[in-house]
Design a protein around this nucleic acid. Structure first.
Lengths: 219, 219
DNA sequence: GTATGATTTAAATGGACGTTTCAATAAGAG
DNA sequence: CTCTTATTGAAACGTCCATTTAAATCATAC
C-alpha cells in the first residue's frame, strides 16, 4: 500500500470504480479502502468527480502520450509515404496493453476502468474524457485515411469506432475471459496480437459501397 | 404515451436508463417521467432492479429469438455444410439493427441502453443479462468454428468478443455520430453493412499463430 | 523550545435514495 | 346495489449519500 494518502485514495478509487462503476462507489467505500478519513477525498481532490478525473488522467495520459509519440516517429520516418494500416493499428493498441503488462497482475483493475468509462459516465464527464482522447483518435483517423484512399472520411471514422469498441470491450471483459481459464484462455500478449490482426483486416476491407456494388453486379 | 401505467413506466425507465445509466436514475425520475406515483414501480415490478430486468427483457428477447430462429433456418438448409462467416455475422447483427429501424427515430433510446448494459451493471445483474445472451453467443461461436476450421476454439471466442464490442460500442455511441451530422454521417442501414464487412474481414483473417509464424519465417 | 502550515480526525449537515404503509379510489362480478 | 380485487395516492420510513466544519494532530522551520 502506498505511503501517502493521496496515492492510496487513487489506488482504492481506481479499483472500486473499475469493479462497481463510478455512481455505485461511495466516498465511504473509497476512504475505507484507502484507510483514510472520509474527508480526505474532498481535502486532496475537491470532489468525487474531480477524483475520478484524477484517476483517469493518471492512466490515460501516459497511454495517449505514447500513442502520439510513436505516431510522430512513424510519420517523420515515413516521409510522405502513408503508414501501413497494421502499423497504425499496432501503434494505437499496443500502449494500452503494455500498461496492462506493467501492472503485473493478470487482470489489472484500471483496464476494466478504462473500458467502463467508455459507456458509463454521464455526457459531461465523458466529454472531458473524450477531449483527452478525441484529438488522438482524430490524428489516427487522418493517418488511416492516407493509407486507405479508397475509403471516404465517413467510413474510416466508423471503422475507428468499431476499433475502439473492440478495444474497450476487450479491456472490460477480456480480463474475465483471461481469468476464468476456460477455452478462451490466452495471455494478454497473444490477445493483443489477435486483436491487431482482426482489426487490421476490418480496417482494410474494401469500402462498403464497392462491396454492395459488386454484389449488385453479380446478380 | 401508453395508456397503462406499467408500460408508461417501462418506456420512461428505458429512456432514462439509456441516457443516464441505471444507478444514476432514481425511482422519482422514473415515476415522474411516467406520470405515475412513486410507489407504482414497486407495485408493478417489485423493485428497481426488477424493473431494469423487465426493461431489458422486453427488448433483448425478441432480438435473441430472431437471431436463433434465423440461425436454425440457416443450419437446417445448409445440411452439414458450414455456414459462411459473412452470413453468420449478418444473422447475428441484423436483428438488433432492425429494431433500431422499427422504432423510427434516428437514435432510439434502447440501443444506447443495450450498449450501456454491456459495461455498466454490476456483476450479478450482468450475469442475469448474460445468461439470456450467453447461450446465443455460444451457439454462434460454435457455428463460426465450423466455418473457420483453421482457428482454435479460443481464438474464435476472442474474435466473437471483438465483434460484440464493436456492436455494443456502435449501439451506444454510433447514434451520437448519426445525430451530429458531421463527416461520419450515414444512415443506420449503411452503418450495419459497414459493420458486417468490417467484422467479417476480422473474423476470417488467418489465425494469429500462423501470422506470427509467417512473420518469423520472413525474417 | 515556539510558530506555521499541512494533514487528519470526528461529528454533523441537509438532501436524496429505495421502499413501505395504509387509506382512497377504480373496476369488475354477483 | 354490494362485495372483492386491483390500482393509485400521499406521506413517511430508515438509510446512505457527498460535503462541510472545526478542532486535533503532525511536520517542518526558525
Amino acid at each position: 500500500m502506498a505511503t501517502n494518502t493521496k496515492e492510496r485514495i487513487l489506488d482504492a478509487a481506481e479499483e472500486l470504480f473499475a469493479d462497481r462503476g463510478f455512481p455505485s462507489t461511495s466516498m465511504r467505500d473509497i476512504t475505507q479502502g484507502a484507510d483514510a478519513n472520509i474527508a480526505a477525498v474532498n481535502y486532496h481532490f475537491g470532489s468525487k468527480e474531480a477524483l475520478l478525473l484524477a484517476v483517469l488522467k493518471r492512466r490515460i495520459e501516459p497511454v495517449n502520450q505514447a500513442r502520439v509519440a510513436r505516431l510522430d516517429e512513424l510519420e517523420s520516418s515515413a516521409g510522405d509515404q502513408p503508414i501501413s494500416t497494421e502499423e497504425l493499428v499496432r501503434t494505437f493498441l499496443t500502449p494500452v496493453f503494455e500498461t496492462w503488462q506493467e501492472h503485473g497482475g493478470a487482470a489489472p483493475k484500471y483496464m476494466k476502468l478504462l473500458g467502463r468509462i467508455h459507456a458509463e459516465v454521464d455526457q459531461d464527464l465523458r466529454t472531458k474524457f473524450i477531449q483527452e482522447t478525441g484529438a488522438v483518435l482524430e490524428r489516427f483517423a487522418t493517418a488511416f485515411e492516407r493509407g486507405l484512399p479508397a475509403l471516404d472520411a465517413s467510413e474510416v471514422r466508423w471503422r475507428v469506432l468499431f476499433l475502439v469498441g473492440s478495444m474497450a470491450y476487450t479491456m472490460t471483459w477480456g480480463t474475465a475471459l483471461l481469468e476464468v481459464g476456460d477455452q478462451a484462455r490466452r495471455d494478454s500478449e497473444q490477445v493483443l496480437e489477435t486483436l491487431i490482426q482482426y482489426t487490421t483486416a476490418g480496417m482494410t476491407v474494401p469500402s462498403t459501397a464497392s462491396v454492395v456494388a459488386a454484389d449488385r453486379e453479380a446478380r
